[in-house]
Design a protein around this nucleic acid. Sequence first.
DNA 1: CAGCATCCAAAAGGATACTG
DNA 2: CAGTATCCTTTTGGATGCTG
Lengths: 107, 107
Amino acid sequence: MPTNAARELNPLCEVLQIVGAKWGFPVIAELYKGPQRFNKLQRAIRNINKQSLTDTLRLLEQNGVVRREVFPTVPVTVEYSLTEKGRDFHTVIEAMNLWAAKWGIRH
Amino acid sequence: MPTNAARELNPLCEVLQIVGAKWGFPVIAELYKGPQRFNKLQRAIRNINKQSLTDTLRLLEQNGVVRREVFPTVPVTVEYSLTEKGRDFHTVIEAMNLWAAKWGIRH
DNA sequence: CAGCATCCAAAAGGATACTG
DNA sequence: CAGTATCCTTTTGGATGCTG
């Protein structure tokens, strides 16, 4: 994640935190497919481990991008989904894709 | 910078490399003001050191966002400026700003 | 002036094992 | 199932000094 220096560039800091987080995009991309439980997310995202997944979900939750819901089954079930704010994030992703497509990879 | 995992999400990988780099935004922001020499950039960007500035400029240069021009004065003068691709990057920045403004910091 | 080489400190990432 | 705790490895960042 971009640390202090970049974070001083408000109000971009929040966006940079999200897009700069190593697993932010993969998690968001996966949740676009629909609500998912913790273990399902972990299996879906190649090479992520519990710790990293937990950290990323907490970060996105704090930024209001992801919602966490606990169902009191046994064992407990936890479902993660995108909030409205999270779904609206596609505007940013699209802008990135457009720019990347317009200019291509490498020059 | 977001590392391997995020980078597999082509064609976003290039964008993530740029926005995820700790000093990417500060350098681009500074160059929007116009072409600048190495030392001028370093003085303008709070707390960046030669090494980090060099690394960031090389990264942006490789991505075709920044142009490097050497003038054979003594001592040598090197000027950095944004390419057309680099200036067009404001479309991405704007999308980020819009999203951030729409949803605010924290929730 | 514009860097590169080196070195060190700090942070991030990841593996594993354990728990309610 | 969904984590937390711990430990360890790797990567990054920054400071400093040297050079064409």
